[in-house]
């Protein structure tokens, strides 16, 4: 005869535990940590290149680059002068908090203002794994279609910010900024939305203003 034992334990609890200790570490050291998520090719690295170059006089910033393979992105980011460490997931479709613990062990965290984590390009799994970040930031490019927040609700629900990148391509694609915004706001009425074009450097100032406010909140 068997017996049923009530458990009620989160399947991702091991990740949640490590994420909570990372959050304590970032809070204790007054580091603003942002988890950047998007599909492959939406412009996470381009956004970082611009942001790191434009704000390097204001903040000390570092980047954890998550990719399945190669250190191409870490080299692009490092070219701006910022510290960068590459995490290769060797096929894994998202970063988890143990990878972040390993990465910060090799970064110089002394006096750091902002740590960017560039997650693996994927609109699903990265949203499920907390990394101890202060905010999730999602990036959607106009070439992808304005219904993405509707198709991948968890990521946009959890994000504090959605950047709509590649607005310089708007004349050539059927993408409605209003529709994308409305889809994202269905389950996230407070999401901040910034249309930007990293290539032509348009629309970045509201994103920088948000970063400055978020950074000021960590002091």
């Amino acid at each position: 005869m068997s017996k049923t034992v009530t458990i009620v334990r989160n399947v991702l609890e091991a990740n949640e535990r490590r994420a909570a200790s990372l959050k304590d570490y970032f809070d204790g050291n007054k580091i603003l940590c942002l988890n950047l998520m998007s599909s492959p090719g939406a412009g996470k690295t381009s956004l970082l290149e611009r942001t790191l170059a434009d704000l390097k006089g204001e903040f000390k910033m570092a980047v954890i680059e998550g990719d399945l393979q190669t250190d191409n992105d870490a080299r692009r980011v490092a070219a701006t002068g910022a510290q960068a460490v590459q995490v290769n997931t060797e096929g894994g479709c998202h970063l988890d908090s143990s990878m972040i613990q390993d990465a910060i062990a090799v970064l110089d965290m002394q006096g750091l203002d902002i740590l960017f984590i560039e997650n693996v390009g994927n609109l699903v799994c990265p949203a499920e794994f907390n990394l101890g970040e202060d905010h999730k930031v999602s990036i959607l490019s106009v070439a992808e279609g304005d219904d993405k927040p509707e198709k991948y609700p968890l990521m946009f629900h959890l994000s504090s910010v959605m950047l709509l990148n590649k607005t310089d391509l708007l004349p050539y694609v059927d993408f409605s900024l209003e529709a994308a915004s409305a889809h994202a706001r269905k389950l996230n009425k407070d999401i901040e939305i910034f249309p930007v074009a990293c290539r032509t450097q348009e629309g970045l100032e509201p994103w920088y203003a948000w970063l400055r406010t978020a950074r000021a909140g960590k002091r």
């Binding site: 068997s2 017996k3 049923t4 034992v5 458990i7 334990r9 989160n10 399947v11 991702l12 968890l154």
Partner: peptide
């Protein structure tokens, strides 16, 4: 609707 957890285990005890 965001939850994913093990609710119970049936076993010989």
């Amino acid at each position: 609707g965001k939850e994913l957890y093990i609710e119970e285990i049936e076993a010989d005890v």
